[in-house]
């Protein structure tokens, strides 16, 4: 799709998120992210990183403020539009969210099934990404039979297999060793080089210590400049 209007692909205006009864997870966030940008999102545990990503993937609705993503106005999004937002956004969930009753292959294939690819295309792309994530031998295993790091890699594979234009990564390297972390970073960098916009939430300062990229720090629900 051609975007005729230039502008941020993600934009938050005065976003506040309050969980019932009175937990303010985010307060008055203003943020713009340009198409193709790669930003790190950091902050202590419980500061609101996941909440921010959940707003962008429509898992939560903002309490107040305006929120837009690509061509979607997430503030007034109808429930029937939600799936189409999610197809543009590949989310690597902090808690993986794998279907325990389906195999690794089936879990990853799901992202492609929902957009209606043929089974040959699905099979090829899923095998390629599993190969890349070092999971080729685990194709027919079920998630509970995998280590934490392996599950995390399945979650990453599922999030990126359909080449989404936006990648929301919530602690994607939290369970990985240094070697695997570097591979995941390389993969995300590559997708970013191909045009994907990336928000990368992490505690791991070493990942962004020497970066030239934008680093957003969030503290008790507020963005710090």
């Amino acid at each position: 799709m051609l975007r005729t209007m230039k502008g941020p692909i993600i934009s938050l205006r005065g976003i506040t998120k309050q969980y019932p009864p009175d937990i303010i997870a985010l307060s008055d966030i203003d943020l713009s992210i340009e198409k193709g940008e790669f930003v790190f999102l950091t902050g202590p545990s419980g500061s609101g990183k996941s909440t921010l990503l959940k707003l962008l993937s429509c898992m939560e609705r903002p309490t107040s403020g305006e929120l837009s993503l690509d061509d979607f106005d997430l503030t007034n999004l109808s429930a029937s539009q939600v799936p189409y937002v999610r197809r543009k956004v590949g989310v690597i969930f902090q808690d993986f969210k794998l279907i325990t009753t389906k195999t690794v292959f089936e879990n990853v294939a799901l992202s492609l099934e929902v957009i209606g690819l043929s089974s040959e295309q699905i099979s090829k792309r899923v095998r390629d990404i599993l190969e890349l994530m070092g999971l080729a031998s685990k194709t027919d295993r079920y998630p509970p039979q995998l280590s934490g790091g392996e599950q995390q890699r399945v979650a990453i594979a599922r999030a990126v297999v359909n080449r989404p234009s936006i990648i929301l990564a919530d602690e994607p390297t939290g369970n990985l060793d240094r070697g695997m972390t570097n591979e995941v970073m390389a993969l995300v960098e590559e997708l970013n080089a191909e045009g994907a916009t990336v928000i990368f939430a992490t505690h791991d300062e070493s990942l962004f210590a020497h970066t030239y990229r934008r680093v957003l720090t969030i503290h008790e629900g507020r963005l710090r400049a």
Binding site: S57, M59, P83, R86, V91, K97, L98, V114
Partner: peptide, 18 residues
């Protein structure tokens, strides 16, 4: 019993009809 499966399918962009 299949609640998890259903909600995860929603999260990866499946329409309700799907």
């Amino acid at each position: 019993a299949r609640q998890e499966e259903v909600s995860i399918m929603r999260l990866v962009g499946a329409t309700n009809g799907f």
